[in-house]
Design a protein around this nucleic acid. Structure first.
Length: 225
DNA sequence: TGGATGATCGTC
DNA sequence: ACGATCATCCAA
């Protein structure tokens, strides 16, 4: 995947595979995130919104690197950066199907049914075996574990490469809708998934997000997925 | 320094 | 509907 507008990058990532050691995941659900207020794709919901900080620095680096963050003290969620150096943006990996290394993933997530092994961004990170120490890891040049630029945190001791391979999905199979969990700009339709894929996570709107804008008519709920 | 805050998830 | 749990940010 090369640099692209966030939504375009999301469509490039969708359907592709991410491999780490024995495990290969096929990405079936993603979300696009943009940059700070003065950027080309301003996005109040993005971690880049406040500008460059130690936590989000790799989001402002080259495209094709891992941005991993800790969510609610529990979940390690994985993004692939998608903007040229100096701009901010990335693609959050929200759900995937386990294609290889099923036994390993099952060991990491005991008792979970197959379709849920990598369902949800936190679960996906766990399934792949990616944690915060993987921040900055290059996923395009399959050869290495190179960092995007300045190494700011201890690199992971696990040098096993993390590799992304695109595998575009026909557009008729791609669905899109509001983003999950975010309190601002929730209705920007920057969540994309493979229509009908059983591994896609259930839609959950943030309780902090304002009520969705409804169309005239009275009672018709829009629903969406 | 320390209090508040999540791009969540499983269970209640 | 709720609580777990901690890196990070920001106010002071």
């Amino acid at each position: 995947m090369r640099e692209a507008a966030p939504a375009d990058a999301a469509l490039i990532v969708l359907g592709g595979t991410l491999s780490h050691g024995p495990v290969t995941l096929r990405i079936v659900e993603v979300e696009a995130y943009g940059g700070p207020p003065d950027s080309e794709y301003p996005d109040p919901a993005a971690h880049t919104w406040p500008g460059i900080k130690p936590r989000n620095e790799v989001m402002f680096g080259d495209a094709g690197h891992l941005y991993v963050y800790l969510s609610h003290g529990i979940h390690q969620c994985v993004n692939i950066t998608c903007r040229p150096a100096g701009e901010g943006g990335g693609v959050l990996l929200r759900a995937a199907r386990v294609e290889e290394g099923h036994d390993v993933v099952e060991h990491r997530r005991p008792g979970i049914r197959p379709r849920s092994l990598a369902r949800g961004p936190g679960n996906l990170g766990r399934a792949l075996g990616i944690d915060l120490s993987f921040r900055g890891r290059d996923v395009l040049s399959s050869s290495s574990s190179s960092m995007s630029a300045p190494v700011l945190l201890p690199a992971s001791r696990d040098l096993t490469p993390v590799t992304f391979r695109p595998d575009p999905v026909p557009s008729r199979l791609v669905a899109s809708g509001p983003r999950v969990g975010v309190s601002r700009e929730a209705d920007r339709p920057w969540r994309f998934w493979i229509d009908g894929a059983p591994e896609v996570s259930a839609y959950r709107r943030s309780p902090r997000a304002p009520a969705p804008v409804r169309r005239a008519g009275g009672s018709g709920g829009d629903g969406g997925q």
